[in-house]
């Protein structure tokens, strides 16, 4: 929904839009196979000591309301479809933040049969927050960095996001099939 206004207004409108986006990032949290460590640290960022609300971050329940998808944990086979589905339900513009070592690469679970690897095997990730688990300060820092990036215009509107994710999923499926064939002896 964009307003059809004359050119001179457009830059101002864009600025206002960007300002609003930076100052009101609503997040949704999905655990795709994490050990819980990262999840409780994400929750801890909402609590009095860290209080993410002062940056305007609200944890939303419905993907439809959210701007940022915060993912924790390696992607398990079972959770993969759900992860993609949640991502696709989110309205544009949307961003993905991977929290924790497992979400980055699979972490200690690399090589376990039900683990697909990091979040970026499935979704395009905009910010990585390493740590096992990352401290709440680190999570806040990561989110703020993502937002600063937005201000500088480094992270464009991700209209191609869906394609990327679909491609990634397809790739993963092919991998899976190959694997399944290999295993079934």
């Amino acid at each position: 929904m964009t307003l059809n206004l004359d050119k001179p207004w457009q830059p101002v409108l864009d600025k206002i839009k960007t300002w609003a986006r930076i100052n009101s990032p609503w997040a949704i949290h999905f655990n795709s196979g994490s050990c819980n460590g990262c999840d409780i640290e994400i929750l801890a960022t909402l609590t009095p000591r860290y209080d993410l609300e002062r940056f305007g971050v609200k944890l939303q329940g419905s993907p439809r309301h959210a701007d940022i998808l915060i993912c924790t944990g390696p992607v398990t086979r079972q959770a993969r479809d759900r992860l993609v589905r949640i991502y696709e339900q989110m309205p544009e513009p949307k961003f993905v933040v991977a929290v924790g070592s497992c979400a980055l690469s699979g972490g200690v679970f690399q090589g376990c049969y039900n683990v697909m690897g990091g979040i970026d095997k499935v979704l395009p990730v905009d910010a990585y927050i390493p740590g096992c688990p990352p401290r709440p300060e680190a999570i806040i820092d990561g989110l703020v960095k993502l937002l600063t990036q937005l201000q500088e215009g480094a992270a464009p509107e991700q209209n191609e996001g869906e394609n990327t994710s679909a491609a990634a999923v397809e790739g993963a499926e092919i991998q899976l099939d190959a694997q399944a064939n290999g295993e079934a002896k």
């Binding site: 196979g33 079972q78 759900r82 090589g111 376990c112 049969y113 683990v115």
Partner: peptide, 14 residues
């Protein structure tokens, strides 16, 4: 259940 199933028991075997 099973969304967080990572296969840790098998993991310990290698």
């Amino acid at each position: 259940l099973g969304y967080v199933h990572r296969g840790i028991e098998k993991g310990t075997e290698n």
